[in-house]
Amino acid sequence: MNAAAKNSPRTGSLPASLAYAEAFVAESEPSRVARRKASGLGLASISGGVAAALTLLTKTLSAKAVVEIGTGTGVSGLALFAGMVADGVLTSIDSESENQAAAREAFSEAAVPSRRIRLIAGQALNVLPKLSDGAYDVVFVNGDPLEYVEYVAQAERLLRPGGLLLLHHALWEGKVADEQNSDDEPLIVREALEAVQDSGLFTAALLPVGDGLLVAVRD
């Protein structure tokens, strides 16, 4: 074995290590219930690793005002609330009222005060332009992947300096990294990632947690 091989990272046990990392932070009971409801509705939830990352990042930022695109049944909202300050408000947008009803139940189960919850039913691209410029600490994107480029443009406007853009499904089932893959979802997600890089407004990192999480700080 040459010196380079000796000093290179060991990758043989990587899948097991990733599974260990994903399960490292225990999930709350309200989150488990919300995850089961999502499964019953045929919805995919963020992974445990992504949930832990959302909580960590919002807590590090002492986030008070957060926008979420894609409420789902509340799994990601619970993770965001767990890191936000005690009086922080989550504005969450989803086109499906059934999803938001389930999310509201999850938030109630977790004893989140109603004054901290702002659920808006509607199309994200119709709602986002109505939100205030530079008023948000975090924008979490987990909506329609075919609208990701537009979501990035809205996040540029909505985030305060130092705020975070968190873009879920940033690796889209492992297909984003394959530049020969021209399917709609990985293609648009790839364009969204390039938009972040090319904007000159963000300092970004792409984390291989869950289905991929882009973390970008608004400069």
Rank of each mutant, 00 (worst) to 15 (best):
100 Q>I: 14
63 A>T: 08
88 G>Y: 06
61 L>G: 05
44 A>L: 12
80 L>V: 06
98 E>W: 00
102 A>W: 00
140 F>I: 04
47 S>P: 05
61 L>H: 04
139 V>D: 01
78 L>S: 07
98 E>N: 15
102 A>P: 00
75 V>F: 00
136 Y>R: 03
108 S>T: 14
129 P>F: 12
66 V>R: 06
69 I>M: 06
67 V>R: 04
47 S>C: 10
89 V>D: 04
132 S>A: 15
141 V>K: 05
58 T>R: 05
60 T>E: 00
115 R>Q: 12
37 K>R: 15
132 S>G: 14
78 L>A: 08
82 A>C: 07
56 L>A: 12
63 A>N: 05
66 V>D: 11
74 G>E: 05
62 S>T: 03
94 D>L: 11
125 L>Q: 09
31 S>C: 14
57 L>T: 06
80 L>I: 10
56 L>Y: 02
48 G>P: 05
63 A>F: 00
73 T>P: 01
83 G>M: 01
129 P>E: 06
49 G>I: 10
104 R>H: 12
88 G>Q: 07
127 V>Q: 01
115 R>K: 12
56 L>Q: 07
133 D>Y: 02
123 Q>V: 12
131 L>V: 12
63 A>P: 03
77 G>A: 14
29 E>A: 15
139 V>K: 03
88 G>D: 06
43 L>W: 01
94 D>C: 09
129 P>K: 08
124 A>F: 04
52 A>W: 03
87 D>H: 06
90 L>Q: 06
91 T>M: 11
67 V>Y: 03
56 L>C: 12
65 A>Q: 14
91 T>D: 09
60 T>Q: 04
94 D>Q: 08
50 V>I: 15
55 T>K: 01
93 I>M: 10
132 S>C: 09
28 S>R: 10
85 V>I: 09
124 A>P: 00
126 N>H: 13
45 S>Q: 13
129 P>V: 13
120 I>A: 05
108 S>F: 02
134 G>K: 08
106 A>H: 07
44 A>V: 10
127 V>M: 00
139 V>Q: 00
119 L>C: 02
127 V>C: 04
83 G>R: 02
55 T>A: 09
122 G>W: 06
45 S>K: 06
98 E>F: 03
82 A>S: 14
60 T>A: 11
36 R>A: 15
120 I>V: 15
87 D>W: 02
72 G>F: 11
76 S>M: 07
84 M>N: 04
96 E>V: 15
39 S>Y: 07
137 D>I: 02
89 V>A: 02
114 S>L: 13
60 T>M: 08
27 E>N: 02
100 Q>R: 11
86 A>L: 06
79 A>G: 00
101 A>Q: 15
29 E>G: 09
48 G>L: 10
39 S>T: 12
122 G>H: 07
92 S>R: 11
68 E>D: 13
51 A>I: 10
94 D>W: 11
76 S>C: 09
101 A>Y: 01
78 L>K: 04
132 S>T: 14
112 V>N: 06
54 L>G: 01
93 I>P: 05
99 N>E: 01
36 R>M: 13
134 G>L: 13
51 A>L: 09
50 V>G: 07
47 S>M: 10
121 A>E: 15
83 G>Y: 00
43 L>V: 13
118 R>H: 08
114 S>I: 13
63 A>V: 07
127 V>I: 15
55 T>Q: 07
72 G>M: 14
46 I>P: 03
136 Y>K: 01
